[in-house]
Design a protein around this nucleic acid. Sequence first.
RNA 1: GCGAGAGUGACGGAACCGGUAGACGUACGCGACUCAAAAUCGCGCGGCCGCGAGGCCAUGGGGGUUCGAGUCCCCCCUCUCGCACCA
Length: 872
Amino acid sequence: MPDAGQPQAYDFAEAEARWQRVWDERGCFRVADLPGDGKPKYYVLEMFPYPSGKIHMGHVRNYTLGDVVARYKRARGFSVLHPMGWDAFGLPAENAARERGVHPAEWTYANIAAMRGELRRMGLSLDWEREFATCDPAYYGQQQLLFLALLSAGLAYRKESFVNWDPVDGTVLANEQVIDGRGWRSGAPVEKRRLAQWFLRITDFAPELLAALDSLDRWPERVRTMQAKWIGRSEGARLSFPLARPEGSIGAIEVYTTRPDTLFGMSFAALAPEHPLAAAVALRDPEAARFIAECRRLGTSEAAIETAEKRGYDTGLRVQHPFLGDEEPVWIANFVLMEYGTGAIFGCPAHDQRDLEFARKYGLPVPPVVLPPGERAETFTIGDAAWLGPGTMIHSDFLDGLEWEAAKRRVIEELEARGLGQGEVNWRLRDWGVSRQRYWGCPIPVIHCAGCGVVPVAETELPVRLPDDAEFDRPGNPLDRHPSWKHVRCPRCGGKAERETDTLDTFVDSAWYFSRFCSPAAVRPVDRAAADHWLPVDQYIGGIEHAILHLLYARFFTRAMQKTGFLSVKEPFAGLFTQGMVTHESYRAADGRWLYPEEVERQADGSVVERQGGMAVSVGRIEAMSKSRRNTVDPGAIIARYGADTARWFILSDNPPDRDMEWTEAGVAAAHRFLHRLQRLAGSVADRPVEARPPAEVPDLFSEPARTLRRRTHQTIVAVTTALEEFAFNSAVARLYELAGAIAEAERRESDAGVAAARSEAMETLLRLAAPVIPHLAEELYARLHPGTSALVALLPWPEPDPALIAAETVTIAVQVGGRLRGTIRLPPGAPEPEVLAAAAAEHNVARALAGRRIVRHILVPDRIVNFVVAG
RNA sequence: GCGAGAGUGACGGAACCGGUAGACGUACGCGACUCAAAAUCGCGCGGCCGCGAGGCCAUGGGGGUUCGAGUCCCCCCUCUCGCACCA
């Protein structure tokens, strides 16, 4: 144990619990819905956790980051809202019910109780009085009210779309439950099945969701880029290809393309397997039907469809080229998506990589029509790579000689003039399907009546509660087969009717919880005044994996709530920070078993063996902690062994928070050692009381070591403040290590009264700067420095730097000759140019490098660098 | 497959706006303390050459711009995240 030999080491378990109690009793972190304290507001929020039962290191990282921000902003004089709750609906609870016979509610609330305890032991400065879980009827009832508001605003509607269907279990599968095209439990090949489902009209907001990204200047650039690409505005053309012979009632294929300029390079047309024309062909062509059935087995995941081998089926149909009248074959292709554009494309293999691979596979022609700069039309051919860049049009009739961009405009004009098509803006974003055929989610509050159609449940009847007595003994939706729950009277005609048995996607739950936190007890979804006060969230923190879906849905839902009169803001998150994953080495025994880190031991020679039995263990790669690889470290065990402050310090100290971090035993031990060092330092400072505060206005009265320490103290305030503002927490930690080293060094050099005063100032400053990271130890040591005080570091203002103490007495200037470093000189800051040049040229190694050479010119960056450019 | 990022000593990383690459921490080595070990404290620590002064090489690889490139531009490699029903 690292704390062996530390007899009077403080008992962190006792002390951490004690300070947590003090903060709690004094209500340090509670705020009112409408504070009225005149302070500026600051809303810090970390993505709320799914209650799996135990916190993991990702949570520790996420909530430590948020807590540092919350404590720092409080010290800067803000009234800080920092709430916590539970994203409590979802699949795992239902799986637990099926596997272990525990009711999802019982399982979920037990998990919440366990995780709440773990989070409390982390010492987070949360307002726990705002806690709720999305599975509380009080929460999901309000969500049902929001759904009804969207419904009456025309933002919710029903349409048919595809789900993954397990034909053996008779159940709908999530994408993650489809493994290699088969159901995870039954092993049966999945099928796409068409189902009527609820959708939210996110596409109505596509233009503004895209445009407003520019205003989110405190979001990571890459998240904004990803969202912009996801929304995917494209300009192109919609055009119609007449069929040479109509197929039943279908006489033409509608196609959307972003490359109308390549129309003369067409060598085929391709349909999505779900396209109506494909279905029509399948009716008379068993081969086509078989091909379509095979495509259905790919499931609904776009990644699965796009990574699958590109395959097609030639329907034998022909379409006419709109300008040339040539006939081109119509294929059904597994990579054409029904959800994007019109579900049909024209293939131009020379200028689209996917089309090229398809054409090569099936021996279709590849005529180039865009000539890259520097190529000659007579010799240019396409090899393995399609040409996607700019160029001049060739082999393209009336487009010949035009640049590609001009050709796009020209061909659209021509299509419009001849009534064959038109220019069109298209969006990649699709409407948000929110229906889930599952029990553990928010019931959709509508009733289906044979006579009246879809009838909303009256607001006074909300919440529509989940029945407690559902059965989980077989697959499928327990709500749908519940004996009585869905059978109701139609609110409109009083006749027999059925409740909607689908529940809402859990992304809906997390699309507005941050608004609910402003007034968690309100009888409406939000109290308008409280929401107006606190929103938007000033700093939102969570994993990069949510960069697109959750964040985009929350942005949309906030706009939808604004439009339906619940909120004033349109953008929910003014600032966003995305953290990296927590990783660890993985260990595998000779027989292939994965081993937990606590099951292995590192030998003196660096090899790793199993604790039980001493068998050799192979050390695998460092990767994201996961249960299947068993490379997890339990935060609960770490906190019990080292304390919350150690865990918090280490998780911030090692690397920048937006990158992946590796959890190592050595790193935790080092963090723990440093906290012991702080105690020894504080003890030695406390043992030597200071008569008076150091008079800042007369720094000359201090000895040089005292002046140096004071300068470093005040430089540290500036550096740590800047680092915290920039989320460079690892750099803040490095500056605190340095200040601790400087305190120890000052005493070694000189122990006069000035140094004692400077040390006292430095130590207290260090504690207050470190307090957001290690709040318990900061309180403990602050109390030791100020015996009898009732002040809490948690409530103290942030230290103020004194600019007069910061200025350096000398600067080091690098001297280069011909761009290579040859020496350094030390001068007072702001020395005049001739003096700097003279000193630089006189430096012995510089003088040697200059000998026999002519100085052509020099470059001088004040107080930083001199570069003599030489000839010869 | 498509979209978005990342890559710096043995390891995690630092480096404001293009201006001394390697702060701080870990590991390692040496020393002090100790009967001894641990803990603690001090010193050293990118590679190669050199007795030394010092020199050369070096920020995933290759090219370029510049007085000067980890930082800017082009090409390539590897890893990570997302792909709409995991949360």
